[in-house]
Simulated scan of single mutants.
Amino acid sequence: MNKAAYALKLPQSLKTAAQRLAREDGVSLNLWITVALAEKVGAVETAADFFKRRAGGANPADILSILDKVGNEPPHPGDEMPGQ
């Protein structure tokens, strides 16, 4: 595995919390941050893959024909945008 160095600047409060959690897990701060980053990358890539599969062959332009059918009627009660 190739390794790359990256100088990471964290807010002190976040570093302190990460150090505490790493200590509780019995690992170094470096390993704890690496695992946390790997978990986040995995979650984001999994979600992106899910939505890509879910969209299938959908064409974003197709939504326009659906929206054209809606018309200009006001939203049903409870479907309003917050603050409106």
Results as ranks from 00 to 15, higher is better:
1 M>F: 01
1 M>G: 07
2 N>D: 13
2 N>S: 15
2 N>A: 15
3 K>N: 08
3 K>C: 04
4 A>V: 13
4 A>R: 14
5 A>I: 10
7 A>H: 11
8 L>H: 06
9 K>F: 12
9 K>V: 15
11 P>K: 13
11 P>Y: 06
12 Q>H: 06
12 Q>F: 05
12 Q>E: 08
13 S>Q: 08
14 L>D: 07
16 T>G: 00
17 A>W: 01
17 A>E: 09
18 A>Y: 12
19 Q>H: 05
19 Q>C: 07
19 Q>G: 05
19 Q>N: 04
20 R>Q: 12
21 L>W: 05
21 L>R: 15
23 R>M: 06
24 E>G: 08
24 E>R: 15
25 D>H: 15
26 G>S: 09
27 V>L: 00
27 V>R: 06
27 V>Q: 03
30 N>L: 03
31 L>G: 00
31 L>I: 06
32 W>E: 02
32 W>T: 03
32 W>N: 02
33 I>T: 07
34 T>S: 08
34 T>F: 03
34 T>D: 03
36 A>F: 01
38 A>T: 07
38 A>H: 10
38 A>G: 08
39 E>T: 10
41 V>G: 00
41 V>P: 00
42 G>M: 04
43 A>D: 11
43 A>N: 11
44 V>L: 13
44 V>K: 12
44 V>H: 09
44 V>M: 12
45 E>D: 09
45 E>A: 09
45 E>M: 09
45 E>S: 10
46 T>M: 12
46 T>I: 08
46 T>D: 13
48 A>K: 12
48 A>Y: 04
49 D>M: 06
51 F>Y: 15
51 F>Q: 12
52 K>S: 14
54 R>W: 14
56 G>F: 10
57 G>I: 06
57 G>H: 10
57 G>Y: 01
62 D>Q: 15
64 L>D: 13
64 L>G: 04
66 I>Q: 11
70 V>E: 08
71 G>Y: 03
71 G>E: 02
72 N>E: 13
72 N>D: 13
72 N>K: 15
73 E>V: 15
74 P>W: 04
75 P>E: 01
76 H>S: 08
77 P>Q: 05
77 P>A: 06
78 G>Y: 00
80 E>I: 02
80 E>K: 02
81 M>S: 07
81 M>P: 05
82 P>H: 01
82 P>W: 00
84 Q>E: 10
84 Q>H: 05
84 Q>L: 07
